[in-house]
Design a protein around this nucleic acid. Structure first.
Lengths: 203, 203
DNA sequence: ACTCGACTAGATAGATCGCTCTAGCGGGTA
DNA sequence: TACCCGCTAGAGCGATCTATCTAGTCGAGT
């Protein structure tokens, strides 16, 4: 039993935040869609909407961060991994009716200047994504500085492309951003001596 | 006269949208800060909050779009223009207490799946920015396809960097995104246009 | 002087907001 | 049996939301 009500509330809230943001989502709406009793929200999240929001940001953010190894892992090399990532994101976005983009971007912008607690939560998530990508890029021979800069740029390009793609209902921005990242990744990898014993060098 | 009340309402609403989004901004708050009578909102904007929102998106978007020629115009060449753009954006963002980023990004994400009318307005603004940048890049010798792709990537990188910068209260994402764009711009221009002798780039 | 439309001014309606409160259910322990 | 406690269940509070309504002010045109 534990509390799958609590889990349902978290998942449903995450879906609503991704679609319509923090301020656009009411607690009444959440409990209705989660088929949970209203009081349970304040039992499981005594801190109210803010605590619920913080937990959703962290769990949904961590879940999305796992897509990084999930997509890059099976790919034959980093470049195709990167290309796949943006293309899969575009495909998933369209198939979801232009709803399933970044789970925390809308909330991040809403709270950046109005709620310190939630702002910190979103920042931690972004930092964890950047850290994951940085580690991956360092493994390919980039210097720590170059790797981090590139990792940040990858996340920026993705987030920005999500905004334009949802506004215009088109995959074009995600493809343009993906192409940019792949091209630049190619250039940087060529410049940084790939001393990998693992056979992964072409060109 | 066209009453400057109407103008004050537009400007104040734009400021609030940029800071806290559409759903986070109440009409009461707008009229209070704009020192305007409540009824005037519905006199000047009979369509209510939605019409007000649409007009704010379009006017603020057009105003922000004018920064493109304003920054790139006086620059000695395209690369320094691009570098300046991201650095000025970062500087302005920090000086405003991490509030003055994109005037419509928050609203764009909030309404993308919930309000067709406003979604279209945000898309028109993004399209106009892309069109402006595309034209500029074509003037530098890029093919129409390459120019548009690059223009989209520039906007994506900027928007995404704004999200991370506001969340983390740091200029780093804007610098990383700017560096990425400048590097890729350099590569594409070298392949497309006759190089202009102009000893400028360093760092 | 008089009218009329543009605009100001704010009270108020009706819905919804986040949240608190009490009551009851159900199963493990004594 | 009796008791506790994690959890469900929802009525209801005060605040706030968007929007409408009436009344008043002001200036230009006749």
């Amino acid at each position: 039993m534990a509390s799958d009500t609590r889990e349902r509330i978290l998942v449903t809230t995450a879906e609503h935040f991704r679609r319509q943001g923090y301020n656009g989502t009411g607690i009444k709406q959440i409990v209705e869609d989660a088929k949970a009793p209203f009081g349970s929200v304040y039992h499981h999240f005594p801190g109210g909407k803010e605590q619920l929001g913080a937990e959703v940001i962290r769990t949904a953010g961590a879940m999305y961060g796992e897509l990084l190894p999930a997509v890059f892992g099976p790919a034959p090399d980093l470049l195709t991994g990167a290309r796949d990532f943006y293309r899969l994101a575009a495909q998933h976005l369209e198939e979801s009716g232009w709803e399933d983009a970044c789970p925390i971007a809308t909330v991040a912008l809403e709270v950046a200047s109005t709620n310190e607690e939630l702002r910190k939560a979103t920042n931690e998530v972004f930092e964890s994504w950047v850290a994951g990508a940085t580690e991956m890029l360092e493994g390919e021979g980039l210097s720590p500085e170059a790797a981090r800069r590139m990792a940040i740029a990858m996340v920026c390009a993705l987030e920005g492309a999500f905004i334009l793609a949802r506004a215009g209902r088109t995959r074009e921005p995600l493809h343009a951003a993906g192409d940019l990242i792949v091209a630049q990744l190619e250039a940087e990898l060529a410049g940084a001596a790939p001393h990998r014993a693992n056979g992964s060098d072409e060109e």
